[in-house]
Amino acid sequence: MKPAVIVFPASNCDRDAAVAIEKICGVKPQMVWHGDSTLPELDLIVIPGGFSFGDYLRCGAMAARSPVMREVVERANRGTPVLGICNGFQVLAEAGLLPGVLMMNADLKFVCRDVQLRVESSQSLFTNRYEAGETITIPVAHHEGNYFADEATLDELEQSGRVAFRYVNGNPNGSQRDIAGIFNEARNVLGMMPHPERMIEPALGGSDGAKMFESLVASL
């Protein structure tokens, strides 16, 4: 496996992602600075959580236009798996790799707690170690996680089985159709607001997030 974690100014979950990858996948990921315009040979790119560029203008807007993202978009379009977590999801949406946008939480509050998710699809590089329909517990920590897309896009996501995770037993941010994570059309890009890298062992409160990295180990 040849993973990399992209680091933007004010990314703050980059090291958590690196620890999860190293612990579960057994490989230390390369940490790639946002100003780099070339990427080494990779088979997994993680866009981590945080507040890239201080969330200026819109969450993820600046990061999505940084030099490294041009290369990430190109790799993603050629099939390289890309996982965007929290701010990473916002960046992927702003970069046009995923449809829709993450808006401010409907109740205007920053939400930081464990939430329950239903795994909607186990047919992907990222979720094959989960059972479709199973409920897992993963933490969220965000102010802008309110997924919005027009009705036609939402219908298309549902019909093509591209909703990866949905909030159950309470929607923490007002996202449309309780969407917590989505795939791109080719299913090699996943964006999700919850943080699987923060739930990889019992000492962290649970290990439901570990299966995502185990899925990647099994696929790559």
Partner: peptide, 9 residues
Amino acid sequence: EKLLANTVI
């Protein structure tokens, strides 16, 4: 189109 607005919303 490229930065100042997100024309989705």
